[in-house]
């Protein structure tokens, strides 16, 4: 096994996973004040109102697709009675739809970041790092789904990339599977690991705070600084 293979397909993933986990714990404990979406809607809302929902809903679809394609082994879908062709067609079509939404949304957001001066000045260096990694990851990802699997000859990543990915978590990594994968997939994966490593240090932490608990919460919240008396002290003085 070459040093490069070891570096990219074993060291990088584990370092990224560690950085991501430890980073999140550290950030959660140390920087609640910085944990925010850092919304820039105040600065510009027309482009955002189109770009942001497109990007986010597209991203959720894409994430769901990754779960299905990477985390779920091919044998499970086969067992569930989904044929290889059916899976392939569905994933390529749904993936393309999601991909297009993400790309369109991302391009709108990127254009906005670059061309609206008020938005650019509130963009930090970390934001730009996130944008660069997202651009690479998304761009290559869409090329895989649409270019290779929908329009091209197709590539069965479920036999290589997915097996290697799951192997990482089973502590049984097979870097040779990635070495054999096309360059497109290799770059996509490397950019994604870098993105995960950067995640806890960027605004992306907002993703973990999706306020689902809001649905079951009372409208008005009270908080006190004075502790309530343990038992009533208001005995009326005897007359």
């Amino acid at each position: 096994m070459s040093g490069a293979a070891l570096l990219f397909w074993i060291v990088l993933p584990y370092v990224a996973i560690t950085t991501c986990t430890v980073g999140h714990v550290w950030r959660w404990r140390r920087d609640q004040f910085g944990w925010t979406s850092r919304s820039s809607q105040l600065m510009e809302r027309r482009l955002l109102s189109v770009g942001s929902p497109l990007f986010h809903y597209g991203a959720f679809a894409a994430i769901a697709g990754h779960v299905l394609g990477i985390l779920v082994p091919a044998s499970w879908t086969a067992w569930a009675g989904v044929s290889e062709e059916a899976y392939h067609l569905f994933s390529a079509l749904a993936g393309t739809a999601a991909g297009l939404a993400v790309v369109a949304g991302f391009l709108i957001l990127l254009y906005r970041r670059l061309s609206v001066p008020r938005v650019s000045v509130t963009t930090t260096r970390v934001d730009w790092g996130v944008y660069a990694l997202l651009a690479i990851t998304i761009g290559l990802g869409v090329l895989e789904t649409t270019g290779v699997n929908l329009l091209g000859g197709g590539y069965d990543y479920r036999a290589t990339v997915a097996v290697w990915f799951r192997g990482l978590f089973l502590l049984d990594p097979h870097p040779e599977l990635m070495v054999a994968a096309p360059m497109l997939y290799q770059f996509h994966v490397v950019a994604a690991w870098l993105l995960f490593a950067l995640w806890p240090f960027s605004r992306l932490v907002h993703a973990w705070s999706y306020p689902i608990l809001y649905l079951g919460r009372p409208w008005i919240l009270y908080r006190g600084y004075r502790r309530r008396a343990p038992e009533p002290v208001c005995t009326r003085p005897s007359q």
Partner: peptide, 19 residues
Amino acid sequence: YKREEDGIVLVDQDKCRGW
């Protein structure tokens, strides 16, 4: 939240997520 004692409405800067 609203403070129980005096009703002042405050934003907890550590809990706000910028929504």
